[in-house]
Computed example of a mutant assay.
Amino acid sequence: MKIPLLEPTRTYLACVGTSRDMARRELLVGAGAAVRKAGQALRRAAADGTLHGLEGDEFTVEGICTKDFVDWAYENGMQTVAGKRIRDALMAAPVDERCPLCWVGAVTQLDHVMPKSVFPALCVDPLNLVPACAYCNLIKGDTKPQSAEDALLHPYLDRISHTRWLHARTVWTPIGVRLEFFVAPPDSWDPTLVSRVTRQFTLLNLGTRYAQHANRTITDVNQMVTRLRVRGGANVVRNYLLGESETRFAADANSIEGVTYVTLSADDAYCHGPSATHTA
């Protein structure tokens, strides 16, 4: 995803500048310098890959308790006319409205990369607001990374979609073939990136969620595969599956459907049909 072009200070003032409570508005506008400083610190840490090193006590707003500040700036601010425009722009960014944390759920919420309960001064900073599905937002919660290896991928900053790291294997059961997904990163990745991707895969239960998606794809394609077996045998089936995978991989090197098709194409039992199928 592209980094939002929204300017953080203008975003903040748009969220707090129309409060009908004059005393509150003056207090919030006066906190603009602290919010700007917090945004600068966020961007320095993001550039250095040290978001895990940020401490919450450096991101509070003097004179306003954390709960009040978040309620006023984020909860109320994002409901204003200007705030809704900002929220809508952020929510509309992902391709096909897919959650950029799991790549499978539908975007319904904004997630705070650095939790707003710990980093209130960043609660409306566009770089800290990532569109997400409800599942990922719930599982991620309000925890902050404790180390570089512990940090989840930042959808705006971490670019791994062009490199294949998602793989699967076939598993035969009494009801047919199913897939198990796993992380197999390229050798060019450094250990920290490998740890981060593996942690995200585990924390967000991506193996199970991807398998559910893949199994639905298998059910949908089985009838076509059966016809192709009759028409031309295993090679025709394999070529069809490889063609489908290439189409998916052209848009996303880690497409769940792409991995599903290419994994099925490598399984001789699936390509040949029931007579060659394993039994559990």
Rank of each mutant, 00 (worst) to 15 (best):
K116G: 08
I160K: 01
F201Q: 03
D71A: 05
Y270L: 06
G83L: 03
Q40M: 09
V35A: 01
Q212W: 15
L138H: 11
P131L: 07
V177C: 05
M22P: 00
R216Q: 14
S245Q: 09
D267V: 03
I256E: 03
L13H: 04
I175M: 10
V29T: 13
A45E: 03
V259E: 12
N205W: 06
Y74K: 09
A106L: 14
Q223S: 15
P94Y: 02
L153I: 14
W165I: 08
L13T: 06
F69A: 00
T279H: 09
P174D: 09
S275Q: 13
H162C: 05
T260K: 06
I175Q: 06
T173N: 06
G83T: 00
H213L: 15
A45G: 06
E62N: 10
D68Y: 07
L122P: 04
H112A: 06
Q223K: 14
E55L: 11
L242N: 13
S188T: 13
P145H: 07
I64D: 00
S275G: 04
V107F: 12
G32P: 00
R199H: 14
Q40G: 13
H167Y: 15
H52T: 00
E55K: 15
V61T: 01
R36L: 12
T170R: 02
K116F: 06
C133L: 06
G207N: 11
T202I: 11
M114I: 00
M224K: 13
R43S: 08
A92E: 12
R169T: 11
S161P: 00
F69R: 03
A23P: 01
P100A: 06
A276L: 11
T279W: 01
L228T: 01
A121M: 03
